[in-house]
Design a binder for these strands. Structure first.
Length: 133
DNA sequence: AGTATGACTCATC
DNA sequence: AGATGAGCCATAC
């Protein structure tokens, strides 16, 4: 049997490539999600980099790649690059506003509490998601 | 076999 | 808010 280091937080025995793609495909329209979160949902916690790699290698057709952002809500491509602009365009087409290469995760994040977003005062933005550990 | 390079993330400073 | 270092993984050279 494979010896897996159980002391490590990242003890995924196998990298489920198909599962990663499945998770990405299941991102609802109008919603964005971070690489790391995809990794977590695909059973590869801590392997956000792998998600980016899988995405880069996979055919973009039939994949909502534009809904995948960095953990802080910024687009992963270099600002102004072709892919960058394309992603902004696709996001805008879904009603997701991109300001200076960034999306407000409080409003569009997959794991975010929409109620909190709706409760947020127009001026303040007091409703913030509690950081889970 | 060692280094460098990304569609990454987190803690710290 | 930017910089840095560490951790992470697959490729490329």
């Amino acid at each position: 049997m494979k010896s897996v280091d159980r002391k490590s937080p990242r003890n995924t025995p196998v990298i489920d490539h198909a599962k990663i793609l499945r998770v990405i495909r299941s991102i609802p329209r109008g919603v964005v999600v971070a690489y790391g979160e995809i990794a977590e949902r695909a059973g590869c916690r801590g392997r956000a980099r792998l998600i980016g790699r899988v995405l880069a290698e996979s055919p973009t057709a039939d994949l909502p790649w534009h809904r995948v952002l960095r953990a802080d809500g910024r687009i992963a491509f270099p600002p102004g690059s072709r892919s960058f602009r394309e992603q902004v365009r696709r996001l805008a087409a879904e009603g997701i506003l991109v300001v200076r290469g960034r999306v407000k995760l409080d409003a569009h994040g997959w794991d975010r509490n929409l109620d909190a977003a709706l409760w947020a005062p127009p001026s303040g933005g007091a409703a913030r998601r509690k950081r889970r550990k």
